[in-house]
Design a protein around this nucleic acid. Structure first.
Lengths: 148, 148
DNA sequence: ATATACTTGATAAAAATTGTCGGGTATTGC
DNA sequence: GCAATACCCGACAATTTTTATCAAGTATAT
């Protein structure tokens, strides 16, 4: 799970798509103008989103993109994983040549944390982002986690 | 809050430092060999960690780095924020020229999510990572979150 | 004291990633 | 047919990540 501007742009674009998807497909040109993301970049991002079955495309006039699943079945993790190829911060890439226990240990610790972050972002759906109070700049997910 | 290999390397290095800090300062050369991170890169990372008061340095033979705070007072968020300069994914960088409500809205939503991720990583301390069962490759933080 | 090895600290360079621009082709509604 | 739109590609600049190189400080032995 990597978290960079690339993933942020993808999340922002998906939110825009979710918000404007009521009247047929949404054009990338529209998203580009509203969100100030370059059209070329959006094309790259939506190519990946489409190949990951998060959106579907309609060509020709009146065409554009549609969400392929209901908003409550699309998580932030889905979006980020679709556009941000996961990278491997460990040196022993799954190989069995890790003789030094210490090394494997810390790597294991890290990958565990990594899993936790992904699990957390899996809980946040597009629907939650879209249906939150819009005008307030407060936290979207304040009530998501039980112990707070 | 950005999450890249840079931050991962920093977390891994800090875990290594916490594990080997019992017998005086830990050298970057040692961390480099154990974790397979280039010495030069570690030098840069620890420069930032030092400037953020997460570690202190001792020069000369027998020197190295020490944790500056107890392990339970160092969070993963602390480490990542120290080395990974936060970037601004919004286009209207705090300016008031955001006439399009739609744009500001999604930006607000994103920054909220961003805050949530940071809050989450703030709960994970170095101590939790280090004292977790070492040999198992299972999740480190399985019991951290109440509703699971 | 002085040399020497060890180590941090700083800067430059190389590699990888991110983002933009421009050109094209394919598809489809009108 | 025409125009709107997705889709694909290559080139490029900007940024970030990673490595390489050099300089400076300091404990220790001699």
């Amino acid at each position: 799970m990597r978290l960079t501007t690339k993933g942020r742009f993808a999340v922002t674009a998906m939110i825009d798509l979710a918000l404007h998807g009521d009247n047929g497909p949404v054009t990338l040109a529209g998203i580009s103008e509203r969100q100030k993301i370059s059209l070329s970049y959006l094309e790259q991002l939506f190519g990946k989103l489409r190949r990951n079955n998060l959106v579907s495309s309609v060509r020709g006039p009146g065409g554009g993109y549609r969400l392929m699943r209901p908003m409550n079945e699309v998580s932030v993790a889905d979006i980020i994983l679709a556009v941000d190829e996961p990278i491997d911060a460990t040196q022993c890439k799954g190989k069995e040549n890790c003789h030094n226990d210490q090394r494997c240990m810390t790597h294991g610790l890290w990958t565990s944390l990594n899993t936790k972050i992904r699990d957390y972002l899996t809980l946040v759906t597009l629907e939650q982002l879209v249906t939150s109070p819009k005008v307030k700049n407060v936290s979207v997910l304040q009530d998501l986690r039980a112990h707070k």
